[in-house]
Design a protein around this nucleic acid. Structure first.
Ligand SMILES: [Zn+2]
Length: 348
DNA sequence: CGAATTTGACCACA
DNA sequence: TGTGGTCAAATTCG
């Protein structure tokens, strides 16, 4: 078991070297007036991330074998679920997804939650906030879609095999606006996110421990995760379409809480929270109160720069930097730029 | 060395 | 039969 020390050491050195190089670049950028603030901040974040990684490596090999993250949940709102709009439940018309379990036909896993998040990215660094939603995904497929210029990437949660997390997402670059990505999430995270340290914001009482075993998700823990998702969406999202496939069990917006994802945690209190809360509520509440109705909301936020929110319309974003963008994309979301001619003149 | 990605084959469904 | 989604072997990455 002591054989794998070499590689870890190697990676550690690599990480530190990378951090040094990044610092060097930052030094250069500081001397160049044309360098934008965002670029610099990106470098800072990268350097910080490098430090974090290196430290976590050391920490991991030392002790703390049990990550045991904090269950970030704080929901004190009882679900006030009364009769939904329409009939309580007469006939399930959710023919969308059926139980894809050929061996076990007992459980009908229907109504897999699905919501789409259209993300536009333009700054050279916005990608981190956009494509990295704070979860760790593993790509398991990529397919060209008919009528779409760019292929669609399929991702699933990394902890799928070790835990029962069935959350998946698919990223699809917009046809005409390469700066827009359509990210469709499917399923919810049940995994204990063993990453991204959560600051001891406020000792919240855990309502119920998350599923420890590998038992498939039960129709219960829905609200907490949703809150996280929403927060995440808010953090970086632009447009969120919540589709209520499930005819019941919808929750209200929980109190404010920041998940503090990857490395965008510097100054998250810069913008007016009251306004945030307001628009947040005002926008999301309706879509939740009427599950059968899908809502579309537009948001616009930068990781650390300017913050502007808007909804009900398209927000034109002036941006610059495209080379870096594409580069980062391949690194973050890997929506490989392969227009791959062949779909061009394909019309029926 | 293990983990993540790539990429064509495979499969279910309409 | 065609299309969207997944699997898995090969390959790259860290
Ligand atoms: Zn997960």
């Amino acid at each position: 078991m002591e054989n794998m020390g070499d590689w870890q050491q190697k990676t550690l050195v690599n990480e530190l070297t990378l951090g040094r190089e990044l610092a060097r670049q930052l030094q250069i950028h500081l001397n160049v007036p044309s360098s934008s603030r965002e670029t610099r901040e990106m470098l800072v974040q990268k350097i910080q991330a490098s430090y974090e990684k290196a430290l976590s490596m050391l920490n991991l090999s030392s002790s703390t074998t049990e990550p045991n993250p904090r269950g970030s949940v704080a929901i004190g709102l009882s679900e006030s679920r009364h009769s939904l709009s329409g009939s309580p439940r007469s006939e399930d018309s959710d023919r969308d997804f059926k139980d894809l379990d050929p061996k076990d036909g007992s459980r009908k896993r229907k109504g897999t939650p699905r919501w789409t998040q259209q993300v536009r990215v333009s700054p050279a660094m916005g990608l981190e906030g956009s494509l990295d939603d704070g979860f760790s995904w593993r790509k398991y497929g990529q397919k060209g879609i008919l009528g779409a210029k760019y292929p669609r990437g399929y991702y699933r949660c990394t902890h799928r095999i070790v835990q029962g997390c069935l959350a998946t997402k698919q990223v699809q670059r917009s046809d005409e606006d390469p700066t827009i990505f359509d990210i469709t999430y499917r399923g919810r995270h049940t995994c204990t996110q063993a990453s991204h340290m959560l600051p001891p914001s406020q000792p919240l009482e855990n309502q119920e421990p998350i599923n420890t075993g590998m038992e498939p998700q039960q129709p219960q823990q829905n609200l907490q995760q949703q809150s996280q998702d929403l927060l995440l969406n808010y953090r970086s999202g632009l447009k969120v379409i919540t589709e209520g496939l499930d005819s019941h069990q919808q929750s209200v917006i929980p109190p404010f809480h920041f998940p503090s994802a990857s490395n965008v945690k510097v100054e998250n209190q810069v913008f007016p929270l009251s306004m945030v809360e307001k628009s947040f509520m005002g926008n999301y509440s309706p879509s939740f109160l009427s599950p059968s109705t899908s809502g579309t909301h537009y948001f616009s936020a930068s990781s650390s720069g300017m913050y502007q929110y808007s909804f009900g319309g398209n927000q034109n974003f002036r941006t610059s930097g495209e080379s870096e963008l594409t580069d980062k994309i391949s690194a973050a979301a890997s929506t490989t730029d392969s227009p791959t001619v062949g779909l061009d003149h394909l019309a029926m």
